[in-house]
Design a binder for these strands. Sequence first.
DNA 1: AATTTTCTGATTTACGTACATCAAATTTTC
DNA 2: GAAAATTTGATGTACGTAAATCAGAAAATT
Lengths: 356, 356
Amino acid sequence: MRPTVHDIAAAAGVSLATVDRVLNQRAGVRTVTREKVEQAIERIGYVRDVAAANLAKSRVYPFVFILPSGDNSFMRGLEEQVRAAIGRSAVERTDITVVTVPAFNVEALVAALDEARAGSPAGVAVVAIDSPDVIAAVDRLRAGRIPVVTLVSDLAGSKRDHFAGVDNIAAGRTAASLMGRFLGGRSGPVAVLAGSMLVRDHRERLDGFRTVMAEHFSGHALLPVIEGQDDPALVEKLVGKALAASPEIAGIYSLGAGNRGLIAALKRRVNAAPVCVIAHELTQHTRAALNDGLIDVVLNQDAGHEVRSAIRVLKAKADGVAVIGAQERIRLDIFLKDNLPFEQDSNQAPAEGRQD
Amino acid sequence: MRPTVHDIAAAAGVSLATVDRVLNQRAGVRTVTREKVEQAIERIGYVRDVAAANLAKSRVYPFVFILPSGDNSFMRGLEEQVRAAIGRSAVERTDITVVTVPAFNVEALVAALDEARAGSPAGVAVVAIDSPDVIAAVDRLRAGRIPVVTLVSDLAGSKRDHFAGVDNIAAGRTAASLMGRFLGGRSGPVAVLAGSMLVRDHRERLDGFRTVMAEHFSGHALLPVIEGQDDPALVEKLVGKALAASPEIAGIYSLGAGNRGLIAALKRRVNAAPVCVIAHELTQHTRAALNDGLIDVVLNQDAGHEVRSAIRVLKAKADGVAVIGAQERIRLDIFLKDNLPFEQDSNQAPAEGRQD
DNA sequence: AATTTTCTGATTTACGTACATCAAATTTTC
DNA sequence: GAAAATTTGATGTACGTAAATCAGAAAATT
């Protein structure tokens, strides 16, 4: 049988109350006694039963998720996943609040972070914008001992506890590697379409892409980056213009959102040479375009995994316990037409069994 | 506050004992009373607190994992992941037994399955071999109400509860798609290297690969399949012979294990035209070969995810509850040199915090 | 040595559920 | 309508931990 607090007490020759004081770092234990207890814990290999502890504490974890608002399929999918997690809150002992703020708006994000702090939650997950003000706001949370996880886009230089997202430099490198190889012998420049250089994930993808293109596929010139603000209408206009200006374009790397606009622009092209298109995030639009052959590769991060991982990490940080490192690494999915997963509701439940 | 059994009793106007009888499907409750209680449960939205229930029951889940033995990096990595899970058993309330049986040996596997059944565990996970005898043995387990999850290689036609592994047809299709595009204009036949056509995953990968090659890249002839039994020495011999016999080979798809042999054979080749190599499973050998440019793509399934998923599903099946479908879908990782994850111990723990 | 302060022990209640026992009420059967 | 069978209620204990109270012991201070 697994040792309990009673076994610690017996092994250390102290009372249950003293064991409890040591375990829960309460005051009123002499250092010698504390060490005696800690040695006993070590010796008998005691591991706290988290389930029982949570039960006794009636623990719930109030978390705040801060996401960009707006018409962005990926972000709306992310929000849907957070809401799915809210649906599981009874089982997972969470109490999650979702806050949306206008995209690429530093002041709004800082205000949301500060407001979250005022509610003193057990943790905050945030899709970060790279800015000194945001870093300061995150560090204020951390100064108040509130764990912070960045979601999707990281915030280097801040004291955030963890980043739940993909390695975006690797994503950019991968895009370049696939682009170069898919183009094979073909010549022609490559266009890059981004949302905004304000967010770190976009910048990192661009860096990775540029590095590998320059290193291995320098035959393809890179056209100036198109900044579409993740806005489909704007993207469509800008891409259309770029395609008209450089009809010899061989490839397009779309590293942000607003892919609906890209797809619309591609559809309007007729009798033109094939273009290798690599885009990010699997949405209904990119999925359809992949199936139609308009897009060649979709690089994806699984929003559901990111949300679940963020929650696990926030819980662990709130409790001061370790996490399974490998489980929390968010992987970059590479989707071709051939390995598209079946479409399904993100929060469907199997027919059999009842959630209890 | 979340409703408890007491709330059900109050809402239904019955005693706690009756609620307990209904919840745990004990005898001695009239149908009308049972329905009254069930309606109350529905009405107040009661969800059983699994942690408290497990605590009260002192529940542990005895599971058996049956894996192939032998010198196969992927399978050994899988076993390591199972042992890592054993290390978490105190926290996860599991009691896992690992059984290894000779690879591709139907009788040994059937014997292991029957022996597992004799111990009446709460669930069995097995790397299956496709054979009527194995199907029968799995169905015997299911007949004894023991949940079964197939791991890595599925067992179609059996009554297994779940498959924790990748879609291998999609994997084969993806390999073909990448192979065809990477070869670009180059001509030459493509060789396929398999372990054994006895296991379903290898057969499915081959099917998917052949289909897409025939459909889109028929310019490349497929050489007869080389069956290397996942044995590095044998593989090296056979691949060396094949390369000598057909020096114009443009690509190699290695869909099984024994990649050490493949890599050795490739290294011995000098002054020959480049070959596009796509292999399965990220091991220290394939990782190094990818970095050296000997292998172009590694398709991978994350053994850690598979093991953790198998455990989650077995628990859920044992308890008769639902699982998060999307979370249990094992994804196919596509690794290029550019998106290789950092090497790390599979069961390392962060420095800060203590597991309690 | 007496007093104050700090530390430790003993005990109890609680968390939400499982499970067992026995008495009481209700229904069924003859 | 009485006896038998079934159903329901009341109650207590247990799981492993948290948290509180209060008495008593041990140290530190005077």
